[in-house]
Computed example of a mutant assay.
Amino acid sequence: MCGRFALTATPDEMMELFSLLESDDFPARFNIAPTQPIMVVVAGECAAPGSNLPERKAVLVRWGFMPGWVKDPRDFPLLINARAESAIDKASFRAAMRHRRVLVPASGFYEWRRPPKGSREPSQAYWVRPRKGGIVAFAGLMETWSSADGSEVDTAAILTTAANASIRQIHDRMPVVIQPEDFARWLDCKTQEPREVADLFGPVAEDYFEAIPVSDKVNKVVNTGPEIQDAVTPRSVANAQLKGKDEPTEPDGGQMSLF
């Protein structure tokens, strides 16, 4: 899955990679959590003036997908991820897969290695980033949810796939990565049917990411500084020093309410 990520790129870097006409200034974010606003890139309606490149736009949405047919969000689970293998056929994601595919820019994501059931080994957080640096684009789906009073909320989810061998040592799922040469095809919902882009759902190459063990500071949404990405000795290695102490937990549930 993908339950936390970071985006620390500059607006200029975003404009260059995604062929955006413009990008508002935005702060570096080191610990983006579900229900918070995230940036997504959507396809434009026409080509940029004087260019053969499509006009793409960066917009803010809430991370937590809400299908348009949901009447009461309090009765519906928070969908931060969608399994790429089944999203085409799932009622929750079917319309978005056909009409509202987006890119989710990130500098990397966080994942937690859970110990085997019954083990006293603590969980370990990892900062997973492109080995060569730069921005990675996750496959995303977007939907606008409308309430009975007419107010609207743009929402999104990140598509995941089976992890490659290197990430599988930490977790069995990972975000779907869309390469720059495939941006146009993924965003083209007019001529590219969902099944015609399903070949993009495989795991990224084995050497694309590197996983860096980090402290459990990332578990708390209030910790938003760059220090949460500092490398540490894996807790399994330092287990002897942890005897008698509380084990770290998965990311806390202290997220903002989506509505």
Rank of each mutant, 00 (worst) to 15 (best):
G3E: 07
D230T: 10
S151Y: 02
E22S: 13
E55G: 05
L53D: 08
A137Q: 02
I170N: 04
V221W: 00
A240L: 01
I170H: 12
P175D: 08
A198W: 02
K57E: 05
R100N: 15
H171P: 11
R101H: 03
L7G: 03
L258Q: 13
I158E: 12
A157H: 07
A165E: 15
D12W: 06
C189E: 02
S147G: 13
A238G: 11
G134Y: 07
L258W: 11
V61E: 07
P54E: 00
V204C: 06
V176T: 04
E247I: 00
D230F: 02
L78P: 07
A163L: 12
R173L: 06
M142L: 15
L141G: 01
E55V: 10
W186K: 07
E16L: 12
G133V: 09
N81A: 14
S151L: 11
G225K: 08
M142Q: 15
W186N: 06
W186V: 10
R83Q: 14
P73Q: 10
Q241K: 10
A47P: 00
M1Q: 07
P115D: 00
N52C: 07
E210T: 14
P54T: 01
P226C: 06
Q241L: 12
V177E: 03
A148G: 01
P248F: 02
A33F: 15
D12N: 14
E247S: 04
L7V: 05
L7I: 09
T8Q: 06
A184H: 13
D172W: 08
D246K: 09
M14V: 13
L21W: 08
E181D: 15
P77D: 02
F65G: 06
V41P: 06
C2Y: 15
